[in-house]
Design a protein around this nucleic acid. Structure first.
Lengths: 333, 333
DNA sequence: CTGAAAGCGCTTACAG
DNA sequence: CTGAAAGCGCTTACAG
């Protein structure tokens, strides 16, 4: 808990110390009205002497501004998230807002409640919830009350009750899988990742779509967490199976791990096994072999999410279209 | 600018609408005191009807809490930064604080001023400035006044005037370079990156230290930006020079780009050229070859930075020691 | 250029 | 369980 024991100096203290009136202190603080240089000096030295610092809450209250945009996310280390966060921050700054980030494990509902409470006590415009569906939405909704929410969704239908911007994971996965199939593989394998509840991730659905469209029964997926380290094991499993000639990974970091495991098992990428991911991670160009992937425009998504919060009516039309596309590189042959 | 045209409903409006008194509305809001169920219902329905949402600033003012910790950084996409941000957020949450991130180009002093102004108008405890020296420190200091600052520094001396936690880049670079030399290379090349003003980055200084200690005149560095894409060109230059048998890169992302360029030029890593970086990026295990690097404990640094802000006196002793170490993998032979 | 006064929206004792 | 009153720390007209 932030301490509040020792009463902090206020402008009243500064005014007394400097022998001026309260509004005068305020004036040197805001710089709004001219103040006599020598008065200003007296006030300034009083401020440093008392280690005065303005109370932001009081300022925000009288100015009537609620400039904070809360962001709640399960994690921000994966590349897609990081770039979305960057774009949210950038857009917020352009609109004069401030972004407060809170990373919250959806499993830990007490932790979520507590952190949301901290958020709600602040001057917030609204909240962007990433991976909204991972959370206990009923509870979250109840707690947020009338505070506006926006979310970036990957197309799961229960997102429908909050304003959301859609990043079409399923279509992306379908496109990548289809591309791998077009290279002549009999089937395409997949690395399954944990997803909230026991639902199937849209990227897995897209993979299934593409296979079923081609009349292929989807094989049993390997299992991994998000992130390249845990993908090493999944990759080893896949490498051990000589049936595997093409692997679609739900993100690039997993693909890197899988490629490493293929290498360790002596299976060449792409000659023996084709690999592809999603995200267009900056390192997908530099990896050997470079990685075939699907670029999802997270910057666009972040931008629209902010606009949904600030001006719900015209956000989508205003923000252009996402620059999503398949990026074919060496790893798919 | 956040709009403030239409007056938002306040608890007074809700009270009138629900036919109760002001404190009663407050009570259903805070849940502090029991309220008769039927009164509560009336109030709640009034709130939804008016789309009421509490004013965070007013709440913060009366509660006396200033829970926001501002973070100013030039960039958060590189791995070291991302992990420090994660740890800052985590630690802040544990202490009941909220983190507001602002990414600011140190070159753009108007932009910096404007954003700091937004920050200052909020209920902030203090500000953590990453890469403090990149900014116009005089101006920043003046603007922040008595607001506490903490910074994570890599050892440049002018950081001395603010509380700082030291991440010893120079020692890390020295250790990595020394390790490369120990593999029998005649010299170790370097990829120079832009740094504020025209100063030399501590990682470059550490590289020079190690060479000079060994009686070796440092060769002319290649040049790159941070990030793997721009490192491709620097890597190509180094690959073209047959004198080059070992390259120390100021971070892992650059090392990945350099390794890719070596591959493109037909030079094998580590057989023909040894490569090493700094950071212990998650992908340094998965890259082929895996990358020799130096782990810098950014999570520790972030944690201490927060504690410096909240309790300047005992922060350092309390937070343990950083887990920094050389991590030797395939890329150095 | 400066002071006295009102008010921002909420919470919390204080009385009933 | 509920209402009337005071106050959180600041800014901004309003008068001088």
């Amino acid at each position: 808990m932030p301490s509040k024991h020792l009463r902090l100096p206020t402008i009243a203290d500064v005014a007394r110390e400097a022998g001026v009136s309260l509004p005068t202190v305020s004036r040197v603080l805001t710089g709004s009205t001219p103040v006599r240089p020598e008065t200003r000096l007296r006030v300034e030295s009083a401020m440093t002497r008392l280690r005065y610092r303005p109370n932001g809450a009081a300022r925000a209250l009288v100015k009537g501004s609620q400039p904070i945009i809360g962001v709640i996310a399960p994690d921000t280390t994966a590349y897609g998230r990081t770039s979305m966060m960057t774009s949210i921050e950038e857009r917020a700054r352009a609109t004069g807002n401030l972004v407060a980030v809170t990373i919250l494990d959806p499993q830990d509902s007490e932790g979520v409640s507590a952190a949301v409470e901290v958020l709600l006590a602040q001057p917030i415009v609204g909240v962007i919830v990433l991976d909204y569906n991972s959370y206990n939405t009923t509870r979250l909704h109840a707690q947020l009350g009338a505070i506006p929410i926006a979310t970036v969704t990957n197309g799961v239908d229960s997102d429908a009750d909050v304003s959301h911007v859609l990043v079409d994971d399923r279509a992306a996965a379908r496109a990548v899988t289809r591309h791998l199939l077009s290279r002549g593989h009999r089937t395409v394998h997949y690395v399954a990742v944990p997803y909230f509840g026991h639902r199937i991730h849209p990227r897995e659905l897209g993979w299934r779509d593409a296979l079923l469209d081609a009349g292929i029964e989807p094989p049993e997926p390997a299992a991994s967490d998000w992130g390249s380290e845990s993908a090493l094991r999944a990759g080893a499993d896949l490498a051990a199976d000589s049936e595997v000639t093409a692997v679609f990974c739900p993100n690039d970091e997993i693909a890197f791990g899988v490629m490493r495991s293929m290498y360790d098992a002596g299976r060449r990428v792409p000659e023996d096994v084709a690999v592809a991911g999603i995200d267009d991670h900056p390192l997908s160009q530099s990896y050997v072999p470079s990685l075939t992937t699907y670029r999802l425009d997270w910057r666009w998504a972040g931008r629209v999410a902010i606009e949904l919060l600030i001006d719900p009516t015209h956000a989508l039309e205003r923000s252009g279209t996402p620059d999503n596309k398949l990026v074919v590189r060496e790893s798919s042959g």
